[in-house]
């Protein structure tokens, strides 16, 4: 990797960011939905572009583009007793790696970081695989970080998709 792509950050910051990314994946896999929503800032967004070249989610087709209200709705739907397609049991397992801090704001402590993930999803006697790149814009808070933007670029962005994605990757 070219030297100029490596940002000098403290081992503590690197470790704190990595722990945060691992824990957001763990929260998703454990379906701790209230905790998931709590990770985001009030203006936080979860975004999966429909095109890898996209620089904004506004006024463009996206695979996911959700503020905290839409995320709240998705949680209510998944937990609803009549969410038929959730009844058969639905499990995911994430692995997060390759965590690189791309930029750090010294004054606020906020960071932009990229990482790679693999995710397997089990439903209806079948397992499917997703992989891709996370780009997180994180804001520092007293205990750690909040997500202002979680951008998810999946490898198979063009599809075709078997069924749909019911929860966040």
């Amino acid at each position: 990797m070219p030297k100029d792509n490596v940002l000098e950050t403290s081992a503590d910051t690197q470790r704190a960011v990595e722990q945060f990314l691992y824990s957001q994946a763990e929260i998703l896999d454990e379906r701790r939905w209230a905790d998931w929503l709590g990770l985001f800032t009030d203006d936080g967004k979860y975004w999966m572009p429909a095109d890898p070249e996209q620089t904004t989610g506004e006024r463009l087709p996206n695979i996911f583009y959700e503020d905290v209200y839409l995320m709240d709705m998705r949680i209510r739907r998944v937990k609803h007793p009549y969410a038929h397609s959730q009844m058969a049991g639905h499990r995911t397992s994430h692995t997060v790696s390759n965590v690189i801090i791309q930029s750090e704001d010294e004054a606020s402590g906020g960071v932009v970081c990229t990482s790679r993930f693999h995710m397997v999803e089990y439903r209806l006697d079948d397992q499917r695989y997703f992989g891709g790149k996370y780009t997180h814009t994180l804001k520092k808070n007293e205990d750690g970080y909040n997500i202002q933007l979680q951008r998810v670029d999946i490898a198979n962005v063009e599809g075709p998709f078997d069924f749909v994605m019911q929860v966040w990757l």
Binding site: A50, P61, I63, F64, V164, Q166
Partner: peptide
């Protein structure tokens, strides 16, 4: 665009249950 997202995107909460019925 809003309808395209909510009903027709690969993250749709609507067709999620349709596809399950079709299957």
């Amino acid at each position: 665009l809003a309808y395209y997202y909510h009903v027709n995107a690969p993250s749709t909460m609507v067709n999620a249950d349709d596809l399950n019925n079709f299957r």
